[in-house]
Write a protein that binds this DNA or RNA. Sequence first.
DNA 1: CGGTATGATGTAATCGATTACTAGACATCG
DNA 2: CGATGTCTAGTAATCGATTACATCATACCG
Lengths: 329, 329
Amino acid sequence: MTPKIRISDVAAIAGVSTATVSRALSTPERVGKDTREKVLKAVRATGYRINAAARDLRQRRAGSILILAPNLSNTFFSRIFAAIQEEASAAGLIVQISDSRIGREKLATLGHDGRADGIILLDGGLDPELVNGWRLPVIQLCEWNAAYDAPVLTVDNSAAAGLAVEHLAGLGHRNLLHIEGPEGNVLATTRRDGFLKAVGDAGIDSAVFEGDFTMESGARAAHRWAALDRRPTGVFCASDECAIGFISEAIRLGFDVPGDVSVVGFDDIEFADRFNPSLTTIHQPREAIGRTGAQYLIGMLSDDGTPTAPDYSIAAHLVTRVSTGPAPQ
Amino acid sequence: MTPKIRISDVAAIAGVSTATVSRALSTPERVGKDTREKVLKAVRATGYRINAAARDLRQRRAGSILILAPNLSNTFFSRIFAAIQEEASAAGLIVQISDSRIGREKLATLGHDGRADGIILLDGGLDPELVNGWRLPVIQLCEWNAAYDAPVLTVDNSAAAGLAVEHLAGLGHRNLLHIEGPEGNVLATTRRDGFLKAVGDAGIDSAVFEGDFTMESGARAAHRWAALDRRPTGVFCASDECAIGFISEAIRLGFDVPGDVSVVGFDDIEFADRFNPSLTTIHQPREAIGRTGAQYLIGMLSDDGTPTAPDYSIAAHLVTRVSTGPAPQ
DNA sequence: CGGTATGATGTAATCGATTACTAGACATCG
DNA sequence: CGATGTCTAGTAATCGATTACATCATACCG
């Protein structure tokens, strides 16, 4: 490991003060041409790089925002990440992503000034006391927690669930099943409530199976569904992954989709369109969510005051594909 | 925004020196019981959190490792991230993930001391000069670049491609197609070369279509394949996503998989098992790669010397599922 | 030519923590 | 009882940058 090079080393080699080196790098126009070249030459010769910790400390900013998500394996997040990345990059900020399930102490440290200037939170399951203790601008995307003292940007999950029910009802299905998300999760709850309200309004029979958004839970639900006497002909899953799990298992059990059962997912992940049968699902504008959220957070960083934001709600829409069809006779 | 609280504020409230506050927090056993309680009470009252930038600067370590990946949307990475996260957590380190395609300057900054103690690199496409300029331990996982001066942990991609060819040949296929990865990518190259060598050894007809690992490229290749006079009956795709794209499009074009064409993927992502037909593919032990890589990097952090590591190569194996079958007559 | 504006550079304070060193209080021991 | 050791806690140096302020040289002006 080559010894670390400090700004004073560069200054010594270039024969100038550290202040001049610093200026030559951050505000080149404020340094004489000859001096600038001497400095840059010394920088190249030594391979000097600014020590981020020192700069962050002195400037009281990190030039970066942090995304906290509960599960990095979740395919749903990736497009959101990409959109945030783009917006942040345009604003000269670095994006760091971290798992939000890493223990209280670490989370508190991460969320405190020094390493990041703001936080984008995609997890509604953290301790509100912890989150509200952060002294940084925070914005919640997709998932939220009313106890967090931070603006929210999300789709109207309840209404979206209504769209799914409407679609299935329109196809003649009179007995619907919902496979819900994990207990306590706000998305799971609002989607389920939206489902129940919609079937209630439409006067349709319904049932709810527990699940947890995963393919495995969808597959398990397929078995429970197959064992029923009077099987629902339409299934609304709380996530696309769950829907894919349900369908694949149903097919393995010898059923036809959508011949025997129509399935609607939620999220419209990349695979939804390529799955076989391709998946009818609720499209969440993930790119727009990420982009708008990032813009908003970046705005919070520059404005000094606390811009009390109205919570946005973005429209979601149904994408009709092959996994849903007319109810069997 | 509440004013930031410094260690000196806590010290003043508790009526002790900053040194004592620091010790009470990091090495509680080295302060008297009463003092400790006074300090902790003041910490609770103020909501004080250590400023990470200041601590990192003084300690010359960040207590975190950085993962750089070229494309966070890639489903393939998620399981690796999770494994790294677990190992790092056990070692008391925080994991940060960043997109590796964020521009030279930012990358150089990120990769320099202050913010992270070590780097896990999943991108072989960066400027070697940049990477070798980092003054931090670096390890390459999965993808690599011979010009980087850092150990590598990966599967034998060439041999793995051979497994795919062997499998298809064993099923009687005599004319194989490979849909390769993006030009210049080391994984794409080694997989293609492994394919070509294996078909050469087996005396089997072959063709190679260009691709880029994505579903879209697989779908495009399906059209090209369908238009051929003498269609290969076995297809080996450079990634699972590509294979899924190929299959879904082939099915839309009216073909049967594996009836008309057998398809093998590469990676064994979560969806491979749930796709319809489920995907025969090369299983990469992603969890083992992430775990071993993280352990190795963590070792590099503690050992002072530069432990010249032998480059590991991990075995990959074929997982036979439904997307491959006997060659049609 | 004296006075002022301008631009380049250096000096030293500063960001907020950790920690080497020091010192006092008290216990222990020969 | 003096010497020595052990705890506890404070003082001040330190990490490596940025930047307010001071200084100096030069240009420009009436």
